[in-house]
Amino acid sequence: MMLALVSDFLASPVMMHSLPYALVIAVVTSSVSIMVLAHRLSFLTVGVSHASLAGLGIAALLGLPLLPGATVIATLIAMLLALMPHKQGISEDAGTGILFAGSMALGITLLSTAPASAVSLFGLLFGNILTISATESIWLWFLALLILLATFAASRAWWSIAFDPVTAAAGGLPVDGLRLLLYAVIALTAMLCVKLSGIVLTAGLMILPASCAWLWGRSLIHLWLLSLIFAVVGVLSGLLASYALDWPAGPTIVLALCTLFLASAGAAWTRKRWPSQPHP
């Protein structure tokens, strides 16, 4: 039965169209989510995904191409947030909360004045991985490549900063600049996820893969490999379940990742409580 389901799934043109995007999401979010957890920026992903609403609103108002316009605006807002705590003495979570509330309100206000056909609010909130146009596709591939290149180049520096920011700065590392880059990469990843899985589910995708891996990982590369495996398994099984049960794709993927997290946490707890006996 499972085999028949998989072969039906692979024969479905809609699902085969969405599969490459789902895999791109898995690779990108598994890489970025490690830094989200390492730098304690989970709340930022929520804030930035909501800032995308303001970005879309402004882009719709100015008649800019929606996705690129919104991406640039949301990234600028996130970078502003990276600078804000230092300049204004506002804590990072309060700053993110302000960003979250303000941009959501601005986005809804602006979008309510935009022509009804311009932006689908439901699509924004829950994503539309199954209906991606050719123009959007080019933009999404470009975005994914940019994120992966930046993450590859800066991952060790970000890791050092997360481990010990004072020593990293004392070694001459441009800590503020690298943090700004991290915020920009998180914003770009959030925008990629918003298009594919919606605002509501973006934080789930950007936090869960690394959270599953965190319980087992022992080093950066180890963590990344595990995070990648959890993300690919979660995304594929979620997409398959959404096809089988006729559930919306985005939420099903996040539910699959949540299930993986519970299984991972349960296994880690069991291992801690009943450690395996060493072989004689």
Binding site: A38, A153, R156, S160, F163, D164, L173, G217, R218, S219
Partner: peptide, 28 residues
């Protein structure tokens, strides 16, 4: 330096920590 986390959170091995002291560490 004097300040450091009482309970480190990041999964790192001892060799990873020492490697961070080398400038070459930043090159992926």
């Amino acid at each position: 330096h004097q300040l450091h986390e009482q309970q480190p959170r990041l999964p790192v091995r001892v060799c990873d920590v020492v490697m961070m002291g080398l400038g070459a560490h930043l090159n992926p």
